[in-house]
Write a protein that binds this DNA or RNA. Structure first.
Lengths: 337, 337
DNA sequence: CTGAAAGCGCTAACAT
DNA sequence: ATGTTAGCGCTTTCAG
C-alpha cells in the first residue's frame, strides 16, 4: 500500500511537506504543491484516516445520535447533516440512542462514542436527567436539534407555541370540545417535545375558558399506526364527541385522518384534524399543520459545529427555527355550530 | 487522559495483557482478566479507537452508501443496519452516494471512503458502468440491498416479478387499459430497479395481449410529489382514460391516490391504483401493493458482512427477499366492464 | 499465561 | 519554504 513516504520519495520532498501539500496547508510553494499532488495521484495515494486521526487527535467525523432513523423528523434531520457535511471532508457516524431504553446502557455506549467523533449533533425527544448531566460533562461541541435539553444549545422550533397556535386556530374556528392525541407516555420527563406540545395545547384550551377532557386524550408514539389506533378509540367515545382533534405530529394526524375517513367520518365537516410538522404527505392530503423544516435545522446545527471546530468559539448557540401555521382542508368550523 | 499504560500499571500487568483482557481474547487467566477489567472501570479507561484502528488495521465500522436517507426504503434499510450492528461494537458510517450526480465525483469520494470502513452495504437504484467496475475493484466485503448490481451479491426482492405480479392482478380484475407511473428518467441504465419494474409491467401487459399506451406512461422520482404531479397529467388524458394505474413505488402511488381523490375521482370505483413497497401509509389508506421489508433485508445483509469479517468466507451471497401481494381497497374491477 | 518491543502511517513542533 | 524527529495509543509477533 502506498504511504506518505512513497509520495515524499517520489516527489523528492519530506513527508511533512507532502502532508501540508495534501491538506492544503500554507507554507508550501505552489509549484511544490502541484508536483506533490500530481505524484500522489499517479501513485494512487490516499491518506490513512486511522493514522491521521491518531496523530492529529481529530477524527473529522460528526456523530449523530438519534433514537430513530426511519421517522420523518429524524430522517430529514440526518439528511440535513449529510448535506451540510458533503464535500467538506467530514464523515457522519450514526449512533443509535435507543428509543426509551435504560439510560445506563445509553451512557455506556456514549463513552465509547466520544473517542470517535469531534462533535455531537443530538436528535431526541426524551432525555433522562442523568443523561443530561452526562451530556454536560462532554468536552465537545454539541448541538441538539429539536427538543430543548436544559443547558444545551439547540436549534428547533418553539414547540409550545406551535401547539398553542394550532389549538387556538381551532378554537378560533369555533371548536369548543377538542380532543388531543399527544406523544407522551406515562413517564415524568419534564423537558420533552411531547410534554411541551401537550402544555401548549392545554394552555390554549384553558385560556379560552374551555374544558380539558382527559377522557378525550390519547397517547401515541408518533407513528401512523398510533394515529390509527387513537382514532379507533376516539370513535368509541360517547356522543357528543369532540369536533376537533389536535395531534402532536403529522404522522399521527395522518393516521387519525385516514382511519376517520375509512370509518366514514367526514373530515373536516364532522371532525377537524390537525398536526404539527409539515410532512410531505400532509400537503398531499390537505392536512392543516404547523410547518417546520428539520432538514434546515440540522444543516444550521451542523454549520455551527463545523464553525466551532474551525476555531470559531461561540459559534454553537441556540437558535429558534422557523415555523408557520399552514391551513389546508382538514379543518373547518364545527358543523353543529 | 487515561491510557492503556495507566491501566497496565495499576493492575500490575503489561499493556499487552490489558489489551487481550479488554478485548476478550484468550490467553489471559480469569482472575487476571477480572482484575484488569475492574481497574479499567475504576480508572474510567476507554480505548482510543484511533489508536486501535491504526494498530490493528480494522476500523470496526460498516459503511452504508446511500443516495437518500429521508425516503422510505432507505430509511428502513439504514435502520436495519443500525439494529443489526447494535451492541456488537461496530459503528455505522453514512456516506452520501449523491443521487444522480456525476460519477466522477462519486468515485473520488469512494476512494477516501475505503480507508475508513471494513465493509460496505450499498443502497442504490442507479449505478453507472464505471461505478460498477470501481465497486468490483474494492477488496472489501460488499453487499447491495435492493436493486441488482451485476457481479455483486445482493439481497432484495425480485423486482421484475413484483411489478409483473401486481400488473397481472389488475389484468385479472378485468382491466384492459392500464397506466404506468414508473421511476425511470431518460437515462439508459439497464440494471436499475426502476427499469426492471417497468419491464415487469410491460411484459405482463403484452403477455395478456393488451396494448402498451406510451401516452399513459408517466415519469416519477419515487416521491409523493411526483405521484401527485403524475396524477394531474393523467387526469388531462382524453377519455376514455385507463381504468387503473400501477406505480413503481408506494410513495408515488400514495401521491397519485391522494390527488385523484382530491380531484373527485373515486378510487377504486373509477380508478384502481397500486404501488410496490409496503409503506406504512399504504396500509393506513388501503393501498393494494406488493409488500417487501427493506429493514429485514438490510439486517440480513449486515449479518452477512459481519460473518464475513469474522472470518466466515463465503458468508456474503445473494439472497432473494420475501415479497407478497397485499390486496386492499384501492383496487376493484373496472366499472364499465 | 504474560511481557518486551517493534511498529501502524501520519502530524506537529522545532529547526534550518 | 522545507526537513527532522518525536511521538499519537494501541496491537502484535516473538520470547519467556
Amino acid at each position: 500500500m502506498v504511504g506518505i513516504e512513497d509520495v515524499a520519495a517520489a516527489a523528492g520532498v519530506s513527508t511533512a511537506t507532502v502532508s501540508r501539500a495534501i491538506r492544503g496547508l500554507p507554507r508550501v510553494s505552489p509549484k511544490t504543491r502541484a508536483r506533490i499532488l500530481e505524484t500522489a495521484k499517479e501513485l494512487g495515494y490516499v491518506p490513512s484516516s486511522s493514522a491521521s486521526r491518531l496523530a492529529s487527535g481529530k477524527t473529522r467525523t460528526i456523530g449523530v445520535l438519534a433514537p430513530y432513523v426511519d421517522r420523518w423528523f429524524f430522517g430529514k434531520a440526518i439528511a440535513g447533516v449529510d448535506e451540510e457535511l458533503h464535500g467538506k471532508g467530514y464523515n457522519l457516524s450514526l449512533f443509535h440512542l435507543g428509543g426509551r431504553t435504560a439510560p445506563r446502557e445509553r451512557l455506556f455506549s456514549r463513552a465509547m462514542v466520544h473517542k470517535q467523533i469531534d462533535a455531537i449533533l443530538l436528535l431526541c425527544m426524551y432525555l433522562h436527567p442523568e443523561e443530561i448531566d452526562d451530556l454536560h460533562a462532554i468536552e465537545m461541541p454539541l448541538i441538539v436539534i429539536g427538543g430543548p435539553v436544559p443547558g444545551c444549545p439547540n436549534v428547533g422550533i418553539d414547540d409550545y407555541r406551535a401547539a398553542r397556535t394550532i389549538t387556538e386556530y381551532l378554537i378560533g374556528l369555533g371548536h369548543r370540545h377538542i380532543s388531543l392525541l399527544h406523544g407522551q407516555d406515562d413517564s415524568d420527563l419534564n423537558f420533552s417535545v411531547p410534554k411541551i406540545r401537550m402544555e401548549g395545547f392545554q394552555d390554549a384550551v384553558t385560556a379560552a375558558g374551555l374544558e380539558l377532557h382527559p377522557d378525550a386524550s390519547f397517547y401515541g408514539n408518533f407513528t401512523v399506526e398510533s394515529g390509527i389506533e387513537a382514532m379507533r378509540k376516539f370513535l368509541e367515545l360517547p356522543e357528543p364527541r369532540p369536533t376537533a382533534m389536535v395531534c402532536a405530529s403529522d404522522e399521527m394526524a395522518l393516521g387519525a385522518l385516514f382511519e376517520a375517513r375509512r370509518r366514514g367520518v367526514r373530515v373536516p365537516e364532522e371532525l377537524s384534524i390537525v398536526g404539527i410538522d409539515g410532512h410531505e404527505m400532509g400537503a398531499a392530503v390537505g392536512l392543516t399543520t404547523v410547518w417546520q423544516d428539520p432538514l434546515a435545522q440540522a444543516r444550521r446545527g451542523t454549520q455551527m459545529l463545523l464553525a466551532e471546530l474551525a476555531g470559531e468559539v461561540g459559534a454553537v448557540h441556540s437558535e429558534t427555527a422557523e415555523q408557520r401555521l399552514v391551513v389546508r382542508e382538514s379543518t373547518a368550523p364545527p358543523s353543529h355550530g
